[in-house]
Write a protein that binds this DNA or RNA. Structure first.
Lengths: 131, 131
DNA sequence: CTAGAACCTGACATCAATGTGAGAGGCAAG
DNA sequence: CTTGCCTCTCACATTGATGTCAGGTTCTAG
């Protein structure tokens, strides 16, 4: 398939797909005229890359992880492994912080609701529980 | 306290604190000579703001939420409320996605370990579970 | 063969938060 | 008063992923 179709199927813009290739996250074969051709496998790869992007990994980091996905037997797998564990932990920490923040928002919402319903509770005071 | 101390106590750079003020997220009184002075309450506020930043909210969004923190009785509380619920949901979705991604990394790690230990499992094949 | 859609490269623009540097002024201790 | 540190404003730079535009080429349907 050509780049437009891959774009349509993954939701990634054509621009982004070319950027991914430039960063070494995606490969393509070229037609005689120089147009990029992809196999169906690339769909999955793009989705995976996008997932990692959404998790806050940078292209550089993703590039380090992909070798393991592609060829687990390579020598650099150990480095990639290290990187993966590290990112996994970072992700865990981030998730926990987001959960705390969500809880904080919940407290605010609850306080605001109480205030609205009773006209008495102080939602501002609730904010003091976040420091 | 002056800006340097607030910076030291919150971990936010002096530059960032000025930026927060510019965005309406933080207020200060000025000395005769024009220097910013803060009360201890501002520490808490900065921490709260940073937490929201870390959760991926933009200054614009945070600005919309702060009225509720400051004065829950204001008219715009309803809009802020709406915004808060919306952000809360967005946050929940994001957390779920991060958890899925973490799980995906776990699968990769496990597969890589299995490969390393047995020299047989195919970690590349494991990657096919992420699409 | 031809028109139009899709593609190519390359370059510049964008956004948001923050870094950085210049030049000037405030403020406390000696 | 002076020295040194902190602060002020203003402005430009940075980062990373992506948008967008221009000028040219490839592919495909009719």
């Amino acid at each position: 398939m050509r780049i437009g179709e891959l774009s349509a199927r993954t939701g990634a813009s054509v621009r982004s797909l070319r950027y991914y290739e430039e960063q070494g996250l995606l490969t393509s074969t070229r037609s005689a005229g120089g147009q990029r051709h992809y196999t169906d496998d690339e769909i999955e790869r793009v989705v995976f890359v996008q997932r990692l992007y959404a998790a806050g990994l940078s292209s550089r980091t993703i590039v380090e992880l992909l070798p393991c996905v592609d060829s687990p037997s390579d020598d650099h797998s150990d480095a990639a492994m290290e990187r993966m564990l590290q990112e996994r932990d970072r992700l865990s920490d981030h998730i926990e912080e987001l959960q705390r923040t969500r809880d904080a928002l919940d407290v605010l919402v609850t306080a605001a609701r109480a205030y609205r319903d009773t006209g008495r509770a102080n939602c501002g005071a609730a904010a003091t529980t976040f420091a």
